[in-house]
Write a protein that binds this DNA or RNA. Structure first.
Lengths: 143, 143
DNA sequence: TGGAATTAAATTGTACACAATCTAATTTTA
DNA sequence: TAAAATTAGATTGTGTACAATTTAATTCCA
């Protein structure tokens, strides 16, 4: 196998390994809040937007209803959110935070700093990786 | 939530979204070979090393036996590999390629180029991202 | 040397991911 | 406006991930 093609593979593997490494660093912090990483992402989105349809959540997190529906049911079982079918469009389901869901934000407030610390990101890494990766993501999102 | 802390979150989310985006680009190519992306990674490792213990595979791919054992059973069911308990150490299981497993490499030979093309990676992205991410991975692997 | 500690896989259980399909509601358009 | 097409979620089925535990084999070491 040609060297260049092999390296290209490894870049994709690096993304895959890095994603799992990052998630593993969240685990002890999120475990204390009884959240998984994808559940935390949903909570982050709701803390920012307050109410979101399943479709809007899916667009933000790039996840489909096959992933979100059971995840949202688990968050509802924990009393952090409420799923309310929209009156204007009965196909749509709106996700609301409960009081407990809103309060959880206080316990999550220092997670980003702890993760950054735990991962040991440098300023240079942050400033280089974030824009470069987001450009790649945008290339395949906008159409 | 402070701006800087929020951005740190989003960097981790970018990693998570990018990893899934990359995998989705492999899917149509690997589907033709009846492989998933993690199965393809195992095959890549075996094409390079010929024989590997489950432990060695786990070290290379950063996956544990809870993930690998069922995955390897599926590859064995497809007749691409053989699982052979080691004679020297009966705790260990060595993974061998079958003739079919070796031959599959020919059908996979152009996947890296197609992925690079499909993802639209630039030289600059490749040359910046690969070393930077691998340094982050190494920080948390070596101890 | 023989019991304690360690190690390698396998197993169990929970939670994503995602393709494919289904159902019900809404929009399009002939 | 009524049938066709589209849309939003839910469901089904397969395959990871990974924590926690178990089993069997090996190594340590008192």
């Amino acid at each position: 196998m040609k060297q260049q093609l092999k390296l290209s593979n490894q870049l994709c593997f690096s993304f895959y390994a890095l994603s799992r490494l990052v998630t593993s660093h969240y685990q002890p912090l999120l475990g204390a809040l009884d959240l998984t990483y994808p559940q935390y992402l949903v909570m982050l989105a709701l803390w920012e937007h307050d109410v979101l349809s399943v479709k809007a959540l899916g667009r933000l997190l790039m996840l489909d209803s096959g992933t979100l529906t059971p995840l949202l049911k688990r968050l509802e079982a924990k009393k952090l959110i409420k799923r309310v079918r929209s009156k204007e469009d009965e196909r749509s389901v709106n996700i609301h935070l409960t009081a407990a869901g809103k309060q959880l934000q206080q316990q999550a407030i220092d997670i980003p700093e702890k993760i950054s610390c735990s991962m040991g990101f440098t300023m240079e890494e942050f400033n280089t990786l974030k824009p470069m990766i987001d450009i790649i993501l945008q290339r395949h999102t906008a159409e």
